[in-house]
Design a protein around this nucleic acid. Structure first.
Lengths: 191, 191
DNA sequence: TGTCCGACCAAGCAAGTGCTTGGTAGGGTA
DNA sequence: TACCCTACCAAGCACTTGCTTGGTCGGACA
């Protein structure tokens, strides 16, 4: 009962991530599950409910991990590094969910029921701004950079990796995260 | 005659960029233009033809500028900087076109007629890889970084800016490009 | 044995999709 | 005056969309 539900959600998530929420039809999902489209409505209210459940579950976990980092007693630089590592870990472990959030959040936000996605965006911004400001205050990060712009560059580069990273590829997500941190922290210019 | 065509294309580009190609209906475009949907077909073969014309025109110009940079006698670092500046300039001057290419290329690639978009992607990759390798060979860029990964980070960060940059905002596209180059080249770590 | 119940099917509806068809108003040209 | 041509309208077609309805079937439980 509940198992079948989760199975269907996983199938739906894969399709949403691959083709986008709006471009995925309930018939696509049903076909992939080997049932008829109408039968999906025995398990779910609507197509929207499916993506809602997928995103909610994922985001609760992700933001829980950010909160842990912020609450830890690690130094600012280590916290920033951990936040990047956690993000790449999410790309690895919850690839579909991240892809859906990246690609379809803007569209979903046009519905009232997805207003919480905007809250999550604000919350995410606060996490990164806090990490950056702590680093600057502690004197380990450059203080001549526009914090808002720096936040956007970090956010974009981290999350957009979901569009090309494939679990099981040539490089592990941790290797990618380390390389990224190296560029972000030290730059590509030869010292 | 030709003017009206270009006018309609600009309207379509704005909607495609805002809502996505598939999520924009021919009735949306017609409404925005103040005509009926059928009347669009006096000017264009199909909805696909519209986006095709929009992307082709833009890409010819953009890649022409990349070629100029590669053909110039500027040093490797200056060439890399110019490529970044040109890209942010495209985001400023051809916002809709860049957004469409960013958001809908994957979907459009499922149609044969848009196979050239894949060629452009390969071409773009070659441009950045060449710029990076030239910099490494000349000894001005770090040689301990994975060139392929570095390319992806640059590409992603540059182009994804189209999702939040708005012409006429607080910072000019040149200021943003300069800040980005500063982070990319020197890192955010305090020297 | 009878009775539920969860999972699914078969059929179809209303709304919306890209696109087609036949027509018309109005300005330019012969 | 007669003829085009450009830009558009009015209507609708074939198809796809999310979702609904009434029903079937097999296993669990009394």
């Amino acid at each position: 009962m509940r198992e079948r539900r989760d199975e269907l959600l996983a199938i739906a998530a894969g399709l949403f991530a691959e083709k986008g929420f709006k471009n995925t039809t309930v018939r696509d999902i049903a076909d992939a599950a080997g049932i008829l489209s109408g039968s999906l409505y025995h398990h779910f209210d609507s197509k929207e409910s499916m993506v809602d459940e997928i995103l909610r579950t994922f985001q609760e976990e992700l933001f829980g991990r950010y909160d842990e980092i912020l609450a830890s007693d690690a130094d600012p630089l280590a916290q920033l590094e951990q936040a990047v590592l956690v993000s790449f870990d999410a790309i690895d472990q919850h690839h579909d969910e991240v892809a859906i959030f990246q690609n379809d959040a803007a569209y979903l936000l046009t519905f009232d029921r997805f207003a919480y996605l905007a809250d999550r965006n604000r919350q995410s911004r606060q996490v990164w701004l806090t990490l950056l400001q702590n680093g600057i205050d502690a004197g380990v990060l450059r203080d001549d950079l526009d914090v808002e712009l720096t936040y956007r560059f970090i956010r974009d580069t981290v999350w957009v990796a979901v569009s090309w990273y494939r679990p099981g590829g040539r490089r592990t997500h941790t290797e990618i995260a380390r390389q990224y941190l190296s560029i972000l922290l030290e730059g590509i210019h030869r010292a």
